[in-house]
Design a protein around this nucleic acid. Structure first.
Lengths: 209, 209
DNA sequence: TACATTATGCACTGGCCGGTGCATAATGTA
DNA sequence: TACATTATGCACCGGCCAGTGCATAATGTA
């Protein structure tokens, strides 16, 4: 007799999805303030009133959207860090890993999310903080774990995994990230490649046994 | 008979200064949209109408404010990069330089400016681009020049000064900068110190002759 | 002092948009 | 089919704020 087994009207959930899917690109493109609930409703193919039926306020809608996007970014980046180890020659593997990681972090959606969160962090500091914990911070932890395994294999000499992970990450994509945040249009693919390659090379020079 | 020699009414210039001085902290604290011309006028101790006498629109006011702030940041950071070389033992000098640089870039005003520019870069992309050119990019160029002199002195081995400068900068403050942009409140002084020290040490391991 | 330039105060317009209320239509469940 | 839940359309309120117009006062120059 639990409620869980009863069939529910699928329309609210469906509308919710439509709205969230449409709202994310809207917020990414225009920011929070400049986005209108009406505009999002139109983009979702739904009445403005329906949005308010499902989300009490525009703030709540934004929070839901960002929460979802944070989860997506987290999965997207972390799963690449946790890919297999020792599949090829070490030097090549590190370079490939650096490139994959740089491409993930510097992908348009991830960058756009970061910019949005930074821009709105005055209004939604908790969202920016949550993003920081679940993306950059958690990703660095995953990188640290990977580096530690290389250490155990005798391929690197790592004293402090977390610090080494930071050095790896920001050598590989720090400059490009900074540029992407301020001048998104100038981040051509070759910059990502060059930055990742040069950064990984320097990392290896500093952390080889 | 040139106009330049004629004495002008000092009031407009004075009001301009008052307004610009009051507007910067206002914009840094609230962003562009949430700042009101009325609020800025009050903070400047000036009538709202006076603001409109001197700045055609709120956009123009913002542009003037940011232009000024960009120049300030540029000077503030660059003059520290161009300080004397060879005043003490090399290892200590690099560590001190790293710390000075990290403190400059991560100073509250510089960070706040960066956050503001990133947040408003949808509305004012030219301002963000100008900031990028005149601050991060120009500063990296100055660091590159400094590293090149260390190379000439045989203290470092630098192949590509610009790339080495990026590696130095983001090793020293990349992680802290990322954190500061998303979670400004958690940037305690010891983080800056630790980050600068660890980053400089790694840099030396990678770039010593 | 006489004249010109600025600053001020204040009322006002116009546009934008978040959020609401309600009657009606559409669509789901049983 | 009968009933309940949602979705829709639309008019509407209220607040906020950029920007304006103007008459008056204050302050500068000569």
């Amino acid at each position: 007799m639990t409620n869980r087994e009863q069939r529910r009207d699928p329309r609210p959930a469906r509308s919710r999805e439509l709205i969230l899917d449409a709202a994310l690109p809207h917020f990414l493109a225009h920011g929070f303030t400049a986005s209108t609930v009406e505009g999002i409703a139109v983009a979702a193919g739904v009445a403005k009133r329906t949005v308010y039926n499902l989300f009490p306020t525009k703030d709540d809608l934004f929070r839901s959207v960002i929460h979802r996007s944070t989860e997506t970014s987290e999965r997207f980046i972390t799963e690449r860090v946790e890919s297999d180890i020792g599949v090829g020659e070490f030097h090549d593997e590190i370079l490939a890993f650096a490139l994959t990681h740089a491409r993930a972090v510097l992908s348009p959606d991830v960058i756009a999310t970061r910019r949005l969160l930074i821009g709105e962090s005055r209004i939604f500091p908790e969202l920016a903080a949550e993003y920081f914990e679940r993306v950059p911070s958690a990703v660095l932890q995953a990188i640290a774990a990977r580096l530690e395994r290389y250490h155990e294999l005798g391929l690197l000499h790592i004293d402090d995994p977390r610090t080494a992970a930071e050095h790896f990450a920001y050598l590989v994509l720090g400059a490009a990230l900074d540029r992407a945040l301020l001048e998104p249009r100038t981040l051509e693919p070759h910059r990502v490649t060059d930055s990742a390659t040069a950064g990984a090379t320097t990392f290896l020079r500093a952390y080889s046994p």
